[in-house]
Computed example of a mutant assay.
Amino acid sequence: MNYFKLYTIFLCLSCVKHVVIECQDFVKAIEKSAALVAKYRNDESIPGTVIGVHYRGRPVWIQAYGYSDIENDVKCDIDTVVRTGSVTKAMVAALVAKLVEQSKIVWDNNIHDYLPTSVFPIKQWKGEPVNITVRQLMSMTGGIRSTEELRDFRQLHDYHNVTETLAYFASDQLVAKPGTKFFYSNWGWHVIGALMESVTGQDFEVLMNSLFAEFGMNSTRLSRQELVIHKRAEQYSRVRSNDDQSKHWTLRSARMTQDLGRPLPWLPMGGVITSVPDLLVFTDVMLKSYSSSSDGYLKPQTVRQLWTPGLGHYGMGWFVGNYTQPSVNIAEKLYQYIHYSGLVAGSVTTIALIPELNISAAMVANMGGIDLDATVLSVINQFVAAITL
């Protein structure tokens, strides 16, 4: 398993459609995984998808399927980029954790230690003032409401940074007392973004793009619709045919929804655009930080805090579960399964890691309204079976 060979269809990595770093034990895993992804794409009428697996910090399989742009007959390749949706939050969490290590933020401090009340007022619960901590925001227990489709995503606003967006929802009441209930909150992550701007004196967009440069995620950035972004996939949705009995889907472009419904896509709730190879660079950074105190981006103890589950099986910027798959011959061992999925108009992204096995997978598709989680888990199962035999 230590001897790897690189195979590519083309001569340069910039134009490959399929990359395999093959070891003898992974041949069957790759074959089975490729087949199940192809079947899922066909069953769900997905225009294009890309999937990849890293093991011990190296790519063992990356493959593209279908079309990035159907109208112009552009096929997906492994460097196709899409919006990641809420997977953005995991990347934001890494930078917040670094600010904690730099003593610029303290997890259990009140957010008003960093944000003035003129930007975000002190909240009340049942008539009494309450504190919201950074940890509560990061763990989705801050009590701040989430976004609503018609209320929040069908309006145009002229904001210049994340801090300015707080004015849109700052006067809204809490949905729960902070620290008592898991409530998935996109707006809570805008408060986190504003907090980052406050303690660093830099715009959120600058901070995140600097992080991507540091990680070597060269296809990753905060997305803006007006920018020309190399290899950006077209975005699609699907509807059933008029015949209620029909099992066939009709594809539709999601471009208008993206342009008009999400006027500020570069914000903390889900604005990153990236590729599968870059997503796997990010998971490698996290896995390296988890296992190494000398050359990781974060300290192992910091990563363990992010990956400690709380209410709703959510850590801080990650969902945290147990990897339990008896068919892969893991006898009496319980591993963590760290994951996140993001959905926006016209694209879906899933990343997943098993830290104890140093393996991760990422998958993207340029169509909304689908769930990649089960497919990614099935692929991981194939590779875990190979490395635990």
Rank of each mutant, 00 (worst) to 15 (best):
226 E>Y: 14
181 K>H: 12
87 V>P: 02
16 V>M: 10
211 L>G: 07
151 R>C: 02
344 V>C: 08
381 N>S: 14
49 T>H: 01
206 V>R: 08
254 A>Q: 11
103 S>N: 15
145 R>M: 10
159 Y>Q: 13
37 V>N: 06
147 T>V: 15
254 A>G: 11
271 G>N: 10
313 H>W: 13
7 Y>V: 05
169 F>D: 00
56 R>D: 04
373 D>T: 13
280 L>W: 11
137 L>P: 02
232 R>H: 07
285 V>T: 15
233 A>V: 04
220 T>N: 02
21 I>W: 03
366 N>C: 14
253 S>Q: 01
240 R>L: 10
340 Y>T: 09
359 I>C: 06
26 F>P: 01
309 P>D: 08
256 M>D: 11
65 Y>C: 06
9 I>K: 15
77 D>M: 00
107 W>P: 02
109 N>D: 15
371 D>A: 09
343 L>W: 09
14 S>R: 00
235 Q>V: 06
31 E>F: 03
36 L>V: 13
62 I>D: 00
184 Y>L: 12
258 Q>P: 02
381 N>Y: 04
350 T>V: 14
45 S>A: 01
195 L>Y: 04
252 R>D: 06
232 R>N: 01
134 V>L: 15
20 V>T: 11
317 G>M: 07
57 G>E: 02
80 T>F: 04
152 D>G: 06
362 A>M: 09
203 D>V: 00
251 L>H: 15
159 Y>T: 14
247 K>A: 06
347 S>L: 01
140 M>K: 06
219 S>E: 08
384 V>Q: 09
102 Q>I: 04
64 A>G: 06
331 A>N: 05
117 T>P: 04
55 Y>W: 12
227 L>T: 13
365 A>E: 07
87 V>M: 00
263 P>D: 08
153 F>W: 02
102 Q>D: 14
283 T>A: 08
337 Y>Q: 11
201 G>H: 06
356 E>Y: 10
106 V>G: 08
216 G>R: 08
276 V>W: 06
116 P>F: 12
344 V>H: 07
14 S>K: 10
15 C>V: 12
29 A>L: 10
58 R>A: 11
294 S>A: 14
337 Y>K: 06
264 L>T: 12
77 D>K: 04
111 I>N: 07
282 F>G: 04
47 P>A: 00
66 G>K: 12
182 F>E: 02
357 L>H: 08
162 V>N: 09
334 L>A: 14
